[in-house]
Every structure is written in C-alpha cells, then in structure tokens.
Write a protein that binds this DNA or RNA. Structure first.
Length: 433
RNA sequence: GGAAGGGUGGCUGAGUGGUCUAAGGCGCCUGACUCGAAAUCAGGAGAUGGGGUAACUCAUCCGCAGGUUCGAUUCCUGUCCCUUCCGCCA
C-alpha cells in the first residue's frame, strides 16, 4: 500500500499519478486524508486520557499500600469514568483506522516517473525487438492443430475433467511441459543467481493481501474449503502465481541489510478464475484457468531496484534467446500497469500460427508497495528499519511458450523440431508425426 | 481428529494483580585496561504510532482477539501456531 506519510505530504502528486492510471482512484486520496486526520485527532485525545489513567492507577496503588482505603475507593470511582471514555474513544480510533486502511488497500501503486502516461496497449512503447520472425514455405498451422495432430494436448478430455480452460497434456506434450519447467529452473538457479524454492500452492488470505491480489481481485481467485465444512472456506486460496507464496516468504520479518538482495525462483501451477473471461478468444491454450509458470522474485534495497528490474527482464529474455524465439519487450504505460507495479516490462513472444505476439513474461518493480502490505522490512547498518523493494517477473509462463515453440518450430510435414537447449530435457530432437 | 504441554526481547530463560521502567545468562555495540587481542570492569542497545524544528515526550506491544479490574505478562473466554503421544493417511 502507499505510505500514508507520502499521501499527507504530497497529496497532489499522488492524485496526479493515480489519475494517470485512469482508474479513478485519485478520488480516494481526499477520503483517506479525512479519515487519517480524524484518527490522529481521536488518538491524541485518547492517549492523553490513558496517560491520566496510568498516573491515577499508580497513585491508587500507593494509597492502598498506605492503607488509605477510603481515599483509594474515591479515586477508583473517578478513574472508572476515565476508563469508560477511553473504551469509547478506542473504538472510534480503531474504526477510523480500519476505514482508512481498507481504503488504502484498494489504492494501486504510483507509476514511476519513467513510465509514460497512456490509456491502452497502443500507448505502450516498444523497447526492443529480438530475433527473426520465421518464414514458412507453407501456411503455418496454429498450435491447436499441431496439438491435435501430434496428440500433445487432449482439449476435450481436459474439459471433461474440469471444464473449459483446463488442459490435459498427453505423452510428448506432457514431457515437453515438464522439460520446459526443468530447463527454466536450471537456467535461473545455476546461471542467474536465484535460489530455487518449491512453495505451497495454497496460501492464506494474508499472503494474497500482501502481494496485492486481495481485496480488490478476490473474484479472480479460487477459494477452497475442507470437505463440506463451509466454515473453512476462504482460509486458503489456490495460488494465481508463485509470486503469492514466494514474495511472502519473509513477511513480518526484519531482515539484516547484508541479507539483501534475496533472489528466488519457483515453479508453480497458476490458477485463475478470471470471472467473465469465458467465450470468444478462450479456445486453445492462450487463456486458461490453470497454467504452469516459473516465477522470479527479488527482494532488494531501494537504491538498486531499477537496475535489478533491467536485469530481471534480461533473465526472462535469456529464456527466449536460448530457445531461439523471436520476441519484443514493451514498457507498459500508466493505464496498462498492474495494480501493485510502479514499472512493468512485458515480454511478448512471436507466435507465427497466431500471427501475433503473446505475453509470456511480465517483469515489475513494485517498489515498497508490497513490502508495506506484508510488513517486511530490513534494518540498515545505521539501525533504521526500511521497506525493501520487491520485484517479480515471469521466467516464463509456460502454456504460451509451449504455443510459440510449436508454431515457431513446425515443419512442412507437421512435425516439430526441438531447439538444442531443450533437447537434453526432452531427450529428443523432434516431435515426429 | 483425540490427549497433554507450551508460545515472553537477536537467542536462552525467570516472572501467578501495583517501582515490570520485564530479572539473570549468551550474543551485540561503546568506553576503560592493553602495543593489539582475550579476560575483566563500566555503560548502552527493541518495535509501532502520536506530538515537537529539536533535546525530548506520550501511548501501545509478553502469539492474536475479547472480557474482568482504578490497574493485567499475571485472572477469565475464544482463537491461531508449535512440541510430544495416539489415530488416520500419500
């Protein structure tokens, strides 16, 4: 969440940057400020009363020690009234504090100054393009057709098992998926300096709030319950990304400065309900309710976070370079950025069968927005507690990478060549007809 | 799921209604001693929020949330987590 002190001191700036996002959140600033002022006023009042009561209680103790019981009783009666007022005021303080914080949790991060103001994908600047788009002597097939003919994914049975948007990978398709996971984890853990972790695929509500999924995007999550016990519903949620568990690894901790930077990579399946997304454009593997992803998370000092963001994007790009896939990197404009991000690069891979770029990675610097939500801090050498910056990047999402690979490396006879970097994991150099 | 025990500062560990301003120990920092270090001695050191230019000051924090009381680390209720044993289970 945003720092209430920043909102107090620079409300105009906050309003302007929120307006640039185009979601109307700037109106919440005045509301937050009003609640904050009310809270501080009530707090000053109740704390003065508490100081008064503390003094009185001490005196009563002394009177009782001196056996001045009648006097002590008299003091007790008057002090009891102070107690009643404290109880009432305390409730008001926590009331305005809760209202303020509920509002703060629904205000997105402020875009970094280097992010261009814009409304739609058309306003996203292309930062760089890499690789050649392959040319075919035949009409390239869509991944759907390739999957059917090579029996890599059984769409019909996936839907039978769990409904539309769920995939059943079969035989060489399942192996290719597994090969990609292995390849990505090996790459990032051995070449890019990330510590591999394997997190829970269910997380608490607090974790979801910590990374900014909740409260605003609760409709996009799958909530689980234990058996028929409805009382357990809402305690755990299927992870929408490994970011949810991994970024929260150190929640509520105070790290030592020399522990930073922390870099984690993790594989997880990702579950997204995406309410209302069913219908046209949801066929195939581009947009599904469950997909695999290897995620990169960094917890770094604020002064290095933007350098790290560039490197993080580079780590995701390395994946596509090693696989020989053409891609482009775009900078998301203010209107396109995710809720928690201050700056985001999207990496899009070229899918010849689709004739379009597919987003396979999103690399974001959330600055201290998430650290604040999860109360993660680090102690500087000077002894101050500060919020670290948290970055996340897909390294990369798999279903769409799978699509791009098939479409990119398809041959005239309908087979698919496996790029060299993947062959040791696939234990094959081609998927034959 | 059942039973028992336990959650106190960086760690360990005392504290069963009022100097708890949380003992003691370990570790840490500063100073003294020393050429330097060790040992020893003296001192220091938590978090969050409010007020103040500042020195400083007030409040809150002993897993969490309530309750009793003038006053709660201490008593009561609920809840979460951990440990051990039993049951179930990949």
């Amino acid at each position: 969440m945003l720092d209430i002190k920043v909102i107090r001191e620079k409300p105009d700036w906050a309003r302007r940057r929120l307006a640039d996002r185009g979601a109307g959140d700037e109106a919440k600033i005045d509301e937050v400020l009003a609640l904050d002022e009310q809270r501080r006023k009530l707090l000053a009042e109740v704390e003065a009363l508490k100081a008064q009561r503390n003094r009185a209680s001490k005196e009563i103790g002394a009177l009782m020690g001196q056996k001045k019981l009648a006097e002590a009783e008299a003091r007790k009666r008057e002090t009891r009234e102070i107690g009643d007022r404290i109880t009432a005021l305390d409730q008001q303080v926590s009331g305005s504090e809760q209202s303020r914080d509920q509002l703060l949790l629904r205000i997105p991060n402020l875009p970094h100054e280097s992010v261009v103001t814009g409304k739609s994908a058309d306003d996203n600047p292309v930062i760089r393009v890499w690789g050649e788009q392959p040319q075919f002597a035949f009409k390239p097939k869509s991944h759907l057709e390739l999957c059917e003919r090579l029996k890599l994914v059984d769409f019909a049975r996936g839907a039978k098992l769990a409904g539309s948007g769920f995939l059943l990978y079969t035989d060489r398709g399942a192996r290719l998926e597994r090969a990609l996971i292995q390849f990505l984890l090996d790459l990032h853990s051995t070449q890019h300096g990330y510590t591999e972790v394997s997190p829970p695929y269910l997380v608490s509500r607090d974790c979801m709030v910590g990374v900014g999924q909740f409260p605003k995007f609760i409709d996009q999550a799958y909530a689980v319950q234990e058996g028929e016990d409805a009382g357990t519903l809402g305690k755990l949620y299927l992870v929408p990304t490994a970011e949810a568990p991994v970024a929260n690894i150190h929640r509520d901790e105070i790290l030592k400065e020399n522990q930073l930077p922390l870099r984690y990579c993790a594989y997880s399946p990702c579950f997204r309900a995406e309410a209302g997304a069913a219908g046209v454009g949801t066929r195939g593997m581009i947009r599904v309710h469950q997909f695999d992803k290897v995620e990169l998370i960094q917890i770094v000092k604020p002064e290095t976070s933007y350098d790290e963001l560039e490197k993080l994007a580079g780590h995701a790009e390395t994946v596509l370079r090693l696989l020989g896939l053409s891609y482009r990197v775009i900078l998301l404009c203010t209107g396109e950025m995710g809720f928690t991000s201050a700056k985001t690069y999207d990496i899009e891979v070229w899918a010849p069968g689709q004739g379009q770029y597919l987003e396979v990675s999103s690399c974001s610097n959330c600055e201290d927005y998430q650290a604040r939500r999860m109360n993660l801090r680090y102690k500087t050498e000077a002894g101050d507690n500060r919020f670290p910056h948290i970055l996340n990047g897909s390294g990369t999402a798999l279903a769409r990478l799978f699509v791009a690979l098939l479409e990119h490396y398809q041959q005239a006879d309908g087979s698919v060549v496996i790029p060299a970097a993947l062959q040791p994991y696939m234990k094959a150099d081609r998927i034959g007809v």
